[in-house]
Design a protein around this nucleic acid. Structure first.
Length: 775
DNA sequence: ACGAATTTGATTTTT
DNA sequence: TCAAATTCGT
């Protein structure tokens, strides 16, 4: 017992020793939250609480396995159920789903699958979607589900065309999903909430079953999750929520920060514990983070402190472009490793969007520094993997029309669009699944002999797979591969892509084998459905090798809960962080600020923030503006470096703006001394907006936006529409050329130009320096 | 019906 | 830039 409290501070002990009644742990970054939670679990067990009565819920699989493992160490042999919300939902639905219309063998559709369904529904219902994309509609449906608005309770708001469309599409979509025995991610929560709401006896049973519920990252819960948690904490109100409003970064997914801000109102008898001592970062890193987050209006004030060292100044570096940014970071890491003081795994590079990883990757590769990118979804999301799994899915759930459409003609068996249309008609008329429609294809007059034959053979194959579904997963998938002809089609192709597809399928088999072995060892779980469920709810992020000695590259969202000795956050630029889509709304802007906060507070000893003057993004070059967040950090904690290369010709040539007022420094602040650790680097003033409203840096954005991009100042005079096929044009670098192809209009207008000396090039005209030749 | 070729359009974050 | 959608040719 006493061992459990060793090395814990007062606040932490209070939390660990809390047994009954609601508990709210407000845990700042690096405050030892996971430690407290796991120790509390161990303490509960010591107090005689049965392991089965404890339920710990997290958002990510990564967090779940971390917690599970650490609890395992403290209390060996007492298997506490640690699960993600979605897995928990899935488990509940397998048990009780029939009560809300969900078949026991349901399939979980990922975003692209459910998007597919939505498109079909829109088509079938002949809904006029006006200018709203399926994405937009899907998003609205998702938002509704997160708020527990069901198809019957959804009401179109007057004056909102989108909501009118949703009111039409949502019920049809949901019906189609249920018909296919499929649920989407949001359904996993919504159906459970519905279940509990409509069946008080089940609610009571679950409340009693899970007497002690622990929730991690409570600030990220949405309404559905909130309702479920409350329902599980009614007769036994032992809900322990951990979270930090300042780390709420999933508002866009329906997370309601109000849940944590109002926890005390929801549970008046709550015991609140604040963990404010940080054990992770240096004083200076923490002050930078703290100053930044203090700019948020909607938050609970916290006083973060640490007894750690003062530490080095946080570095803020301005680079000329992303390649220099990447190269310098790679170089820094490389020399630190070579000096023997650090391992590659001490370093992490964070960015706002995945697309920004490219230059970093390239530079690290070039510098010979090992790295790993943590990106979700990749493996199970690959086409070939989904194709193979679709056979299994269909065998497990014959109503799964998405799986049917995916597998029926890959590899191609002569069942094309027309035949599928016929099948769909038949299925619609008789209210059957596509698989059953295929079974009856002899009765379907619209089908050709050839198609009928293929379909019957396909049905036979699925039946065969279904028959052996009880065997090991490896065997099932092996059968699919052997009998579907999928790999043969790949083997006979000489496309290099297909070669790697084959390898991926091999890997899938290995994965399945491992799953079988694990299930065997654990004497539980296993089976095809369990495996499929894992592919639906688990991504690679979860088996990210923490052990490997590699630099970690990840998006800011993926960093939550992690820490690294040295952290780089790149692209602190306006429009990237904060992201451009969050510019108008204060709430969203604050979320971006929290995102930056989360990234910064991952750093233990060293932190470098950087931005770039010119960024190539989505194939376009833009003059970048330093993030406004940089102005909100305390400059006395930071060391500013302007890493301009000595030769500036390139930029002077291409960017008039570069030497203009736009980046002029604030004369009132004296420059920091140059420490000269990098050649060609000089200390400079912090770029700030000029006084008064409408700072000059802003002016660029506006101009750039007006012209549909940057680097247009010199070229705006030439409208893209003056160009015509066959016209002779002049390019400042490539010289004269002839337009051989044109497409698009306005700022999207593109041209292919055959140059006399430089060969063929393609341009987006609005952003190119091309001009018609005179005369 | 199929695959190649071309065009278009869209790009945050994740269970 | 890159993937999806559409058109085109066989």
């Amino acid at each position: 017992m006493s061992a459990l409290l060793d090395n814990l501070n007062q606040a932490q002990r209070t939390a660990v020793l809390h047994v009954d009644g609601p508990l709210l742990i407000l845990a700042g970054p690096g405050s030892g939250k996971t430690r407290v939670v796991t120790h509390r679990i161990a303490h509960l067990l010591e107090q005689g609480v049965h392991a089965r009565q404890i339920l710990a819920l997290t958002f990510t699989n990564k967090a779940a396995s971390e917690m599970r493992n650490r609890a395992q160490v403290l209390a060996p042999g007492q298997p506490v159920w640690v699960s993600t919300f979605h897995r928990f939902g899935a488990r509940m639905l397998r048990e009780f789903g029939e009560l809300v219309g969900v078949s026991q063998n349901f399939t979980i559709y990922d975003t692209s699958d459910s998007r597919q369904v939505l498109k079909r529904v829109i088509e079938a219902e002949q809904v006029h979607t006006m200018h709203f994309s399926p994405d937009r509609i899907a998003c609205a449906i998702s938002t509704a589900k997160n708020k527990l608005i069901t198809p019957d309770t959804y009401e179109a708001r007057r004056g909102s065309p989108l909501s009118e469309i949703v009111a039409q599409v949502y019920p049809a979509y949901q019906q189609r999903m249920l018909q296919s025995a499929a649920v989407d991610f949001d359904d996993l929560l919504m159906h459970v909430a519905q279940l509990i709401y409509h069946h008080p006896e089940i609610r009571a049973e679950l409340d009693a079953r899970f007497r002690y519920v622990l929730v991690d990252e409570y600030q990220d819960t949405n309404k559905a999750q909130y309702v479920i948690l409350k329902a599980l904490s009614y007769d036994y109100p032992n809900l322990a929520a951990t979270g930090d409003p300042d780390q709420s970064i999933y508002g866009w997914r329906g997370a309601d920060i109000g849940n944590i801000l109002e926890f005390e109102r929801d549970f008046p008898q709550v015991h609140v514990v604040r963990l404010e001592q940080n054990y992770r970062s240096t004083k200076r890193i923490l002050r930078v983070a703290d100053d930044l987050i203090a700019h948020n209006k909607r938050r609970k004030k916290k006083s973060l402190f640490t007894e750690n060292d003062e530490g080095e100044a946080v570095r803020l570096v301005a680079y000329a472009d992303q390649d220099l940014e990447a190269a310098d970071i790679a170089q820094q890491i490389r020399s630190a490793i070579e000096s023997g003081q650090c391992r590659a795994s001490d370093f992490a590079v964070f960015y706002r969007v995945n697309a920004l990883s490219r230059s970093i990757e390239r530079a690290l590769r070039k510098a010979g520094v090992p790295y790993q990118m943590v990106r979700g979804q990749e493996f199970y999301g690959r086409k070939e993997i989904k194709d193979v799994l679709a056979y299994c899915q269909l065998a497990n759930n014959p109503a799964d029309d998405v799986a049917f459409e995916r597998s029926v003609n890959s590899p191609t068996r002569g069942i094309g669009k027309k035949s599928l249309e016929r099948l769909n008609e038949h299925a619609y008329r008789y209210g059957t699944s596509l698989l059953d429609a295929a079974r009856e294809s002899k009765l379907n007059e619209g089908l050709t002999k050839r198609a009928t034959n293929s379909l019957l053979k396909f049905v036979e194959l699925i039946d065969k797979i279904a028959a052996i579904a009880g065997e090991s997963v490896e065997e099932v998938i092996g059968t699919v591969i052997a009998e579907s002809g999928y790999t043969e089609a790949l083997k006979s192709s000489d496309d290099v892509e297909d070669q790697s597809r084959l390898e991926n399928i091999e890997e899938l088999l290995t994965d399945a084998r491992q799953f079988d072995e694990q299930a065997d060892e654990a004497h539980e779980g296993g089976g095809l459905e369990a495996y499929l469920e894992r592919t639906w709810l688990v991504n690679e992020t979860d088996d990210w090798e923490t052990e490997a000695d590699k630099v970690t590259l990840m998006t800011l969202h993926a960093t939550k809960g992690l820490e690294f000795p040295v952290v780089y956050v790149v692209a602190l630029e306006d429009g990237i962080l904060p992201h451009e889509r969050s510019r108008d709304e204060l709430e969203q802007l604050e979320e971006e600020r929290r995102l930056a906060f989360v990234g910064i507070t991952r750093a233990k000893h060293q932190l470098q923030l950087s931005y770039v003057r010119v960024r190539d993004f989505r194939g376009q070059r833009r003059v970048a503006i330093p993030s406004s967040f940089l102005m909100e950090m305390p400059r006395e904690e930071m060391h500013m470096t302007d890493a301009r290369p000595d030769d500036l010709e390139f930029f002077v040539d291409d960017f008039d703006a570069y030497e203009s007022d736009d980046f002029e420094t604030d004369p009132q602040v004296s420059p920091l001394p140059n420490t000269g650790e990098r050649s060609g680097a000089r200390a400079t003033n912090f770029p700030r907006p000029q006084a008064g409203e409408g700072p000059v840096v802003r002016a660029i954005t506006t101009a750039a936006e007006l012209a549909g991009g940057a680097n247009t100042a010199r070229h705006t005079k030439v409208s893209p529409d003056v160009f015509a096929h066959g016209m002779t044009v002049i390019h400042p670098e490539f010289g004269p050329g002839k337009i051989t192809a044109l497409s698009g209009a306005g700022k999207a207008r593109r041209a292919t130009v055959q140059f006399a000396t430089a060969g063929e090039r393609k341009f987006v005209l609005a952003h190119s320096p091309l001009r018609p030749a005179q005369g």
